[in-house]
Structures are given as structure tokens and as C-alpha cells.
């Protein structure tokens, strides 16, 4: 019985996770897209000449 309940909960978790994944897949991050658009438009139209150069590198390497 115990084994069975574990199995069921595992299956349920998998199902939930799956549903969760699907939800995320179709979700469009409007706010993030807007921020990305703003950053690109500001650069293309040179709206903020003193804006920090956003194309910074990732922390290079573990030394």
C-alpha cells in the first residue's frame, strides 16, 4: 500500500511537472520583452548616449 502511494505520488508529481512545463512553454514574458525592446531601441535610436554599455561580458573564467 505504501509502495503504491509513493508510486502514485511520483506519477502525480511528474504529471504536475509536465503541466507546469506546458504552461511555461506558451507563456510570453511581455515585461521582459518590453525591457529588451527598450534596450535595443534606445541603442538604435541613440536615445540614451550615456547609458551603460549593456553588452558586458559574463564573468570570464574560474581562475
Amino acid at each position: 500500500m505504501r509502495r503504491r502511494s509513493t508510486w502514485i505520488s511520483a506519477a502525480a508529481a511528474a504529471a504536475f511537472a509536465l503541466v507546469g512545463c506546458v504552461t511555461i512553454n506558451i507563456y510570453f514574458p511581455a515585461a521582459a520583452a518590453e525591457r529588451a525592446a527598450d534596450r535595443i531601441i534606445d541603442e538604435v535610436w541613440q536615445l540614451k548616449p550615456d547609458a551603460e554599455k549593456p553588452r558586458t561580458e559574463k564573468p570570464a573564467a574560474k581562475q
Partner: peptide, 9 residues
């Protein structure tokens, strides 16, 4: 000794 190096570097 460096295993991870930035490509740009």
C-alpha cells in the same frame, strides 16, 4: 590551469 576561459579573452 584555466579550465574556463571567456572566448573573447
Amino acid at each position: 590551469y584555466n579550465r574556463y576561459v571567456s572566448w573573447r579573452e
